[in-house]
Design a protein around this nucleic acid. Sequence first.
DNA 1: ATGGTCGCTAAGCGA
Length: 230
Amino acid sequence: MEFEDLGYNVEILGQKGFNGVALLSKLPFDEITYGFEGSKTATLEKEQARLIEGVFSTENGVVRVCNIYLPNGNPVNNPENTGTFSDKFTYKLNWMNRLNEFVKERLTYEEPFILMGDFNIIPSPIDCHNPKAWWGDALYRTESQEKFRTLSNMGMVDALRAVSEEPNYSFWDFQAGAWRKNSGIRIDFLMLSPQAVDNLEYVKTHSEARALERPSDHVPIEGGFSFRQT
DNA sequence: ATGGTCGCTAAGCGA
């Protein structure tokens, strides 16, 4: 694997052709958590591969980093349109409930904790180019936004919004010339515990990556920290 | 309202 050749420690939780998350680290992993179940085998048996967490030791203490791929949840309604939510949207809401419980526990540790990844949530109108077009979508409806807001209510801070009021989109669809029209959305975040916010130096959205050849539809969000002695 | 574009994997699905 080429990332190992570059000196990274690599941990992956993946389901080929479906879901997957990974962490690369130059520091060794002290602990790894695969999904809400914790172990790789239990998680792959019982749930989708959407969460991986590593704990690292620095000379100034521990840092906990969790990468997620939150379910998309579309289409929201059942095809018969009886007003009932689809299995996919229900899975999304339940997954968010479990995430919120997971984060609540992490916050009791009072560690620098970084929760990052594809949240598949557009938190507010400023986070999309055309709010009207997204209304009712699984990424932009009250049920989803409320559960995302629970993270802030518990004390997690949206790192980008701590430093910028500009839209800073992280995703532009491959379809309908979305990149050309700057019809983007901000759905990828670094959410920080208070102890992580205290050490945040900068956040940078690498929108230039969307103009590469054969790009991803997402772009990287870089967070810079300088962890001090505690 | 539909289809628009990708990746994965070899037809159709999910995003």
